[in-house]
Amino acid sequence: MISSLVYRVRKRQRYGVALALLVLTAALSYAQSSKGQEAAAAKPVAASPATVEQIQAGKALFASQCSFCHGRDAAGGESGPDLTASPLVEQDVHGDKIGVVVRNGRLAKGMPAFGNVDDQQLAALVSFIHDRKANAKEGRRRTVDVADLQTGNAEAGMRYFNGAGGCAKCHSPSGDLAGIGGKLQGLELLKRMLYRENERTTEPSKATPTATVTLASGQTVSGKLAYRDEFTIGLIDSSGWYRSWPVTQVKFTVTDPLEAHIEQLGKYTDEDMHNVLAYLETLR
């Protein structure tokens, strides 16, 4: 069904089931809070063992706010990953990792920020996710294992890389792509090889588009593209400052280093794609 990037928990949202229990858990955490109030504040979630009620409260919250993307059982839904198979959930201790993702989101990757979730609600969500992880059935729904992707022919992939694919024009197995098969595996490598959008917004890389703006005075300014819509162009100049101009008052060019990757998406057959992946996996 649908999906949406902008989707936040409402302010002051209250949940029938959650509410009663939260009074309970609040009482619980109050009893424990005298020794480590500050620590508790820094780590968003109460460290008490999850109660059945807390898990139930988390389930209700998760159902209404998260399940569309992550599935009611947290094992993956429309756009969100299987949390029961998530390394981040694996490493999470009382919400120290999950809390950060839930509160800040990863907007560029489709995970909204739930800035208004209060501590008890977060604790309930975290305990529900951990409970699901502990009780997840065999045969998870959204996992893609490295073994699943071993169907390509590396030899053919190398030929495509150097020939029809035109990859060698920009890449070299002993240069920029040396060791890529060791750094990235499976689905991560496949996604990176196809297109690298997500990294663009967070940390500037070789994939970040650059802009050159020619001012009315004739002076030119170049740098990483920082903003663009049909009305305004913005970049980070050589001294690190953000600068922007109305597009009607300057001339500009934008170079997107990933233009070739975008075009390539329309050219790949699934076989070529798997072969190239197999080839990249040999670059360890």
């Binding site: 839904g77 756009s79 299987d82 489709g110 729904r141 959204r142 689905l187 196809l194 297109y195 998406l265």
Partner: peptide, 13 residues
């Protein structure tokens, strides 16, 4: 499995 989503998909571009 064969219930609900029963698969995985990822947007690329």
């Amino acid at each position: 499995g064969t219930v609900g989503w029963a698969g995985a998909d990822y947007g690329v571009f």
